[in-house]
Design a protein around this nucleic acid. Structure first.
Lengths: 181, 181
DNA sequence: TTCATTTCTTATCTTTTGTTAAGTGGTTGT
DNA sequence: ACAACCACTTAACAAAAGATAAGAAATGAA
């Protein structure tokens, strides 16, 4: 599956634009849309018991994001999905998404193999990174895995994503710099 | 989907018994079997660069485990799957598993909804626990989520699973006890 | 530009974790 | 029963992380 087919899938869908800090999927929403990011960055976050925003994941261009909890389990979203930059997305209803992918053999294969599996693989790899890697190693891995994202989002989001505090990430960064000398 | 249908799926499959510490799936294996645990506990682990075993996950009765990396991506398993207790499993080849589930409407629906989604949900919830919970909270959650496992496996496995050292888990446990007074 | 806001860094202090090692208690196998 | 082994605890120390706050740097808005 390549980007060509993906564009085919989304070319007849709606396009929506969001300004920085716009909510794309509100918390507690049960909407079942599939979003393909054409331009921009999106993050998912929750508000914890202290009232702080905690970022869970970020998505950039050519990535798909959805309200996983709704699509898979018909549950309201725990997360708010918010544009970090001005963002353009293709939007397609999940049922229509399934209908289209099931009619086109290429897309069906893609949906079965690439799309669903990619979600599982990422979730697995992420859990593995917490079990097998230190915070510093997780940060280095994030930088390597997300070269197109790392300089476009606040470090505090990265800190949340790898499970540490922003202050601690700042110290890790200065530690890495001083080691290089 | 209930256990009845699951038993139906596995009733004509092979049954295998493993002694404590037997490897059920060897590391680097590409076998594509699906295992249903009838009795016993299984853990997956890797050997890290220091030569230490690091446990990633445990599975107990009525749970299914598979060589996820092989089934989804045709890659060799990173993990060894090992019986922690004397264990009896139903074994069925993945292709046969797919064939049977696709013929029986109940099983097909179960495979689409319950089986695949359960894997995703668990992987998500696990990642979330590392982002949103402290080590102590992760331990308490593990105990609540796994009442049938927690007293049957060494604490050192639990420590690995929640991403801390055995020594640290021991301290957390004594902290919890002293708080209760 | 200038001002206000937000993020990042740095500092201080406390708490927790990692590491290593020793000791205790329990289990296993012969 | 006995020895050997393994898991758990505890201790001591070093390293890292969390919490809080203050200042610097960057960003955004008027």
């Amino acid at each position: 599956m390549n980007l060509k087919n993906l564009y085919k899938l989304f070319r007849n869908s709606k396009i929506k634009s969001f300004d920085k800090e716009d909510a794309i999927i509100a918390a507690n929403s049960k909407e079942k849309n599939v979003f393909f990011i054409r331009k921009g960055i999106v993050r998912s976050y929750i508000i914890n018991e202290k009232g702080e925003e905690v970022t869970f994941q970020v998505y950039a261009e050519t990535n798909i994001f959805t309200n996983v909890h709704s699509i898979l389990f018909n549950e309201p979203s725990k997360f708010t999905y918010e544009a970090i930059e001005a963002t353009k997305v293709y939007v397609i209803d999940y049922d229509l998404f399934l209908e289209i992918t099931s009619k086109n053999p290429n897309l069906l294969e893609w949906n079965r193999t690439y799309f669903g599996k990619r979600i599982i693989k990422r979730a697995f790899q992420r859990s593995e990174s917490f079990v097998f890697l230190s915070p510093e190693e997780r940060y280095k891995k994030f930088v390597i895995d997300n070269p197109n994202i790392v300089n476009r989002i606040p470090d505090m989001y990265i800190a949340n994503i790898i499970g540490i505090t922003p202050v601690s990430l700042s110290r890790i960064r200065s530690r890495i710099v001083s080691k290089k000398d």
